[in-house]
Design a protein around this nucleic acid. Structure first.
Length: 491
RNA sequence: CGGGGUAUAGCGUAGCACGGUUAUCGCGCCUGCUUUGGGAGCAGGAGGUCGCAAGUUCGAAUCUUGCUACCCCGACCA
């Protein structure tokens, strides 16, 4: 087979880039750091959206839409929030262009300067809480459970397709509650929704937990996250959920009258996942032959490739296989029948393999004679020959098997790449030779985390929920510690 | 924003130190014939402001200056 792309062992970063381009998921655009999501990549994102949107609605939330622009003054109301985002904001300063006096092109009209600059949203807490102020007066208005699907802009220094782009797509939930307990519970609920989605739809095992103060969202009291391990041993934060306390309520003066006629600030959460999930999906399952998609998110789950020399042969095959396609579709399976005569079968095999289609059916004249179909599965690259009459009943089972196999494979990889470490020497050794998650004791201070990061580039990815409490000493400082946390180098 | 590098067809490239016919090759694209169970073969063909601007010269992809864009490494990050 023609190998015009890198393998993971040769160059993991290059492999990822080649894969995204060659599988036709996305490409770089004329705007530095911004990507064009191509139809096939967008179809996968639409699957992610559709499933998550339903989960978000099933947990009581409704969708709304807030502006892309945020007045600069709103932005600075919550001190740590501005501090966190100020360095990566795009700012709109003018609203008009004019012809250049020298006749060469077009320039910004300096007379059209905005009274107040507008920030292109890097996240929407401020504009949303400004609106919530008018919506919430009484405990009867609570809880307020709103989500929005939107694009946001964060002016990153270095970008990578899907993993970190200047503009990206996401959903952001913003909720308001009467009590602290309820808000904390909401943040946990949504983290569980994300974890369920990652594990059962994306086949990506994740670790749920709390972020250390250094990794916390700007403006949050607590940040929860699901953390996944990629095949190169680096961790990737796949989703976050924040308990915001009363920080934004205070900044935007959002108060409600309780049943007891007490005026109090509301309690808030926000939570989101982004197109970065596409990166997680790619790096969790794909191999040196290209993309591997979990069936539940694959835009095309089954592709049928007919082998034919002429129109008569094709029509014979079509007569037999089209009813099978219909039967599969009736079961909710998405099937593509590629009967183009402009590409050869071998070309199609390679193409669909690279695009990660979970199951391929091949039917040629020999099969028609014998009443068989060749079934190839993308995850294991195994092929078997089945009776045509059995296809209808066996394929959905096969898709389930693939979905499960991908999860099991990723889970085993994570288990094999999570190491318990009790000395600083071992910590550095494991990090450099093996990578992956390192479970180690930490004294709980930001200073130690900072020093570990400076020396090794590894950060605390997550303090797992339901962590076993055990006495130990910090792997770096030797000070007393009560639990292990997960360290890793991260995306 | 620091340090390094690159810019020639849709993509990847040769040519450039030493200026001189019609700018090289591969992939891809188009046409025809033969092919079709793992990225077909042969023949023919189309496609270029050599990043932009100025300069040196009889003559510039090649030399000089300025500009622009992009890539890699670092600090920052979902």
């Amino acid at each position: 087979m023609a190998k015009d792309f890198s393998t993971r062992a040769e160059n993991y970063a290059q492999w990822y880039n080649d894969l995204v381009i060659k599988a036709d998921l996305a490409e770089n655009s004329a705007v530095r750091g911004c990507m064009v999501i191509k139809p096939y990549g967008y179809a996968i994102w639409e699957r992610i959206q559709a499933v998550l949107d339903k989960k978000i609605k099933d947990t009581g939330h409704v969708n709304a839409y807030f502006p892309i622009f945020i007045p600069k003054s709103f932005f600075s109301r919550e001190a740590s929030h501005v501090e966190g985002f100020a360095k990566e904001c795009a700012v709109v300063t003018h609203y008009r262009l004019k012809n250049s006096p020298d006749g060469k092109g077009i320039i910004v009209d300096e007379d059209a300067k905005l009274e107040e600059e507008l920030i292109v949203r890097p996240t929407s807490e401020t504009i949303i809480w400004d609106a919530y102020k008018n919506w919430i007066k009484s405990y009867r208005d609570l809880p307020l459970l709103i989500n929005q699907w939107a694009n946001v802009v964060r002016w990153e220094m270095r970008t990578r397709l899907f993993l970190r782009t200047t503009e990206f797509l996401w959903q952001e939930g913003h909720t308001a509650h009467a009590t602290r307990e309820e808000a904390v519970k909401e943040a946990e609920t949504m983290l569980n929704v994300y974890a369920d989605f990652a594990e059962n739809w994306m086949s990506i095992p994740v670790i749920k937990g709390t972020k250390s103060p250094a990794e916390r969202f700007a403006g949050a009291i607590d940040t929860y996250a699901i953390e996944a391990l990629m095949q190169d041993g680096k961790a990737l934060q796949a989703g976050t959920s924040h308990f915001l306390g009363q920080n934004f309520a205070k900044a935007f003066d959002v108060k409600f009258l309780s049943k007891e006629n007490q005026l109090d600030f509301v309690w808030a959460t926000s939570w989101g996942v982004s197109t970065r999930l596409m990166g997680a999906l790619i790096m969790s399952h794909s191999d040196d032959n290209g993309l591997v998609l979990p069936p539940k998110l694959a835009p095309i789950q089954v592709v049928i490739v007919p082998i034919f020399k002429n129109a008569e042969q094709l029509s014979l095959i079509s007569d037999v296989i089209l009813p099978v396609k219909k039967a599969l579709e009736a079961k909710g399976i998405s099937v593509k029948y590629d009967d183009r005569d402009t590409q050869k079968p071998g070309w199609k095999f390679a193409e669909y393999e690279f695009k990660g289609i979970p199951v391929r059916l091949t039917v040629g004249p020999r099969d028609i004679e014998q009443g068989t179909v060749e079934v190839a599965r993308r995850d294991t690259l195994e092929k078997e020959v089945l009776q045509i009459k059995d296809i209808e009943n066996k394929i959905s089972n096969l898709l389930d098997q693939i979905q499960k196999n991908l999860y099991d494979r990723a889970f085993a990889f994570r288990e094999n790449n999570t190491t318990r470490v009790d000395s600083w020497k071992e910590f550095k050794e494991v990090l450099d030779t093996k990578g992956g998650f390192i479970s180690a004791h930490w004294d709980g201070t930001s200073e130690t985390e900072e020093k570990i990061k400076a020396e090794t580039k590894a950060t605390i990815r997550v303090i797992p929920f339901n962590n076993v409490l055990e006495n130990g000493s910090c792997v770096f400082s030797g000070k007393p510690s009560t639990q292990r946390v997960l360290f890793a180098r991260a995306y």
